[in-house]
């Protein structure tokens, strides 16, 4: 199993009030699978994805990534795992506005300590894969929404992650650009990648091979 979570809980303490975002969750995800996470707003989809992406830590329960228990690791170790094993795609792209497409995509490799020459080569390869080889020197503000998201996907792919996580990647896009993004995910899946995507879109869910439905912090299907 690539991912295994046991009795995962996430509780936010807001003053005196406790908000239970994830309420005892068990889940297994195989290598080279394509999973959709669906559910109403506030059901805990983003929270789950952030924990899976090592951006956040669970309050309780266990999370094994690639056989390694990562739930309780320290910040620096988590940063390293994000850098080596995770590719995260945000709904709002989260590109650095002052850097061009190539530099944005190179960023994870920079923190991995890769040499400039290799970084260039690797970044160009993935940018070619997402169809942006002609936009290397563009700043994010000079790109369309779809191009921005493709840049973000290239950035998520560049470190050859064990798993690609996407939180509503088409949420800010029109249907045409959204479709092209989903075709990229499908292609990546067929190339052997493991993908988990949070979505509200039934059409997208149909393309995946497994759909997980969340409600009130629990899996309901």
């Amino acid at each position: 199993m690539l991912i295994k979570i046991e009795n995962l809980q996430k509780i936010y303490q807001m003053g005196k009030v406790k908000v239970t975002a994830l309420n005892g969750m068990n889940l297994e995800i195989k290598k080279n699978s394509y999973t959709a996470i669906m559910g109403p707003s506030g059901s805990g989809k983003s929270t789950l994805l952030h924990i899976l992406g090592c951006l956040d830590t669970p309050t309780q329960g266990k999370y094994f990534l690639d056989e390694e228990e990562v739930g309780g690791l320290r910040r620096n170790k988590l940063a390293e795992i994000r850098n080596k094993k995770i590719g995260f795609v945000f709904q709002t792209f989260n590109l650095l506005p002052n850097m061009n497409v190539l530099e944005n995509v190179e960023l994870p490799l920079l923190y991995a300590g890769m040499s400039k020459k290799l970084r260039r080569k690797r970044a160009k390869k993935v940018l070619d894969d997402v169809g942006l080889i002609k936009r290397l020197k563009h700043k994010p503000s000079e790109l369309s929404g779809g191009e921005r998201q493709r840049t973000a996907i290239a950035r998520a792919l560049v470190n050859n992650p064990a798993i690609i996580l996407a939180d509503e990647p088409t949420g800010n896009l029109d249907s045409v650009s959204g479709n092209s993004i989903m075709r990229i995910f499908e292609y990546l899946y067929k190339q052997g990648n493991t993908i988990i995507v949070v979505t509200h879109d039934q059409h997208i869910a149909q393309m995946t091979d497994k759909v997980i439905k969340l409600s009130d912090g629990k899996i309901v299907n």
Binding site: A79, L96, Y111
Partner: peptide, 8 residues
């Protein structure tokens, strides 16, 4: 963003 992609 930098931290999300691996900055310590």
């Amino acid at each position: 963003v930098r931290m999300a992609v691996g900055a310590k």
